[in-house]
Design a protein around this nucleic acid. Structure first.
Lengths: 211, 211
DNA sequence: GTTTATTTTAAACGATCGTTTGAACTGAAG
DNA sequence: CTTCAGTTCAAACGATCGTTTAAAATAAAC
């Protein structure tokens, strides 16, 4: 951490500001002044604003997606060895839990989670494509495992249900940081694992719903 | 439509561009040139960019939310008259279907649906608050009806499940306009009512999931 | 200590933003 | 025809954007 200290500070500040105000509404001057760095240092260390957001996303998503992939493949292998289908709930847990775990792992980690939660809804292709590139293989694998878990459900139905589930997850992730929508009393969860324990049964029941 | 023709053209162009590129990434020059209007006409007719997006949202949301409210109140009244709880699926249908119906009602209506779907994920408070102001009473009413439909489920659980359901809905609404996430073959629905018929059982099963 | 390579800095670049201005145009009322 | 409110228009406002430049500062190598 001796030399590229500036780089880290920029990444941290960018992560927080992108999550709070969005990509287009955050200027490089906002970021560099928050990071106590010179304006030109962003273009020096990263090349461009787009390369910066790309690196902001990648440094967190890569390890998280690695864990997700490992867990999903383990579930797949265990089920095949046992000759019985995997559990849909376990598959979704493997997909979702790493995000919640990371969220609690560091004081500023929740900013990134909100950023990721918003990524799929980003109207601009820049952010969305960066996120898609990272998440697509995991989605594919998740879809595989879910297909094996629920072989009686047609692929097209499964596709859309997975789509709905992703909506629940991403909406939850970026809402855990902001103000509650309906009831002020219900909203603030100190420990987000409580939300995970509510989210998993919801998704599982939806996925397994009768046709 | 004789005099304020420009106002309509601006609203339509703004609706499409805000949905496609987002609020901050769409300039008034983009809008006025698409609407074949003068740059200053936005500030003349609306006052500001923020007042414009507000009117873009309101002119569609107001009638849709009126329908939703009427249907939800009718469900509530019918159930109370019959002395039996309402059906959760009917309540969600009353909430969701008007959006899908509107989406198919005009060739350009789908742009607005995408805009609304993104609104809750907007990092900027401007757009989100405009949308919240319109949607909050409907959310409250929906929560009421769902509470009566599922009285055995604790309020806090119900709150979060409704939260998850809203995530599914909004994600679906803004994704119906863009590229599919996973399978190219599954995605493009000509008639979005097919998606509604898949979405409702998913949400209902999730809401009614065992504790 | 001198010479390299790396990083930081202040200043400026051209472009675009939302908004404002004041004159030109419009069409119906007097 | 003249008057006048309503509308459109070209032009400019100051501010901010992402990026670039070239010099200054720092660290590393010899």
């Amino acid at each position: 951490m001796s030399k590229p200290d500036t780089k880290h500070r920029i990444l941290d500040a960018a992560e927080r500001l992108f999550a709070d105000k969005g990509y287009h509404n955050t200027s490089l001057r906002n970021i560099t002044s928050a990071a106590k760095a010179n304006l030109a240092s962003v273009n020096y260390h990263f090349g461009s604003k787009e390369a910066l957001i790309s690196e902001v996303m990648d440094r967190r998503l890569a390890p998280i997606n690695k864990i997700r992939t490992e867990r999903l493949k383990a579930i797949q292998q265990t089920a095949r060895d046992a000759g019985s289908p995997p559990l849909a709930e376990e598959a979704f847990c493997a997909f979702i839990e790493p995000m919640f775990t990371f969220r609690e792992s560091a004081p500023n980690a929740r900013h990134f989670i909100a950023l990721v939660g918003r990524s799929l809804a980003e109207p601009d292709g820049t952010v969305r494509n960066i996120f898609k590139k990272q998440i697509m293989p995991v989605f594919q694998l998740l879809f595989e495992v879910i297909s094996e878990a629920l072989p009686h459900i047609p692929e097209k139905v499964l596709y859309w249900r997975l789509h709905f589930a992703i909506g629940s997850v991403s909406h939850t992730m970026h809402c855990l940081c902001s103000k509650p929508m309906i009831h002020t009393e219900c909203a603030p969860p100190q420990d987000s694992t409580e939300v995970l324990r509510l989210l998993l049964p919801f998704i599982t029941a939806g996925m397994e719903a009768p046709l």
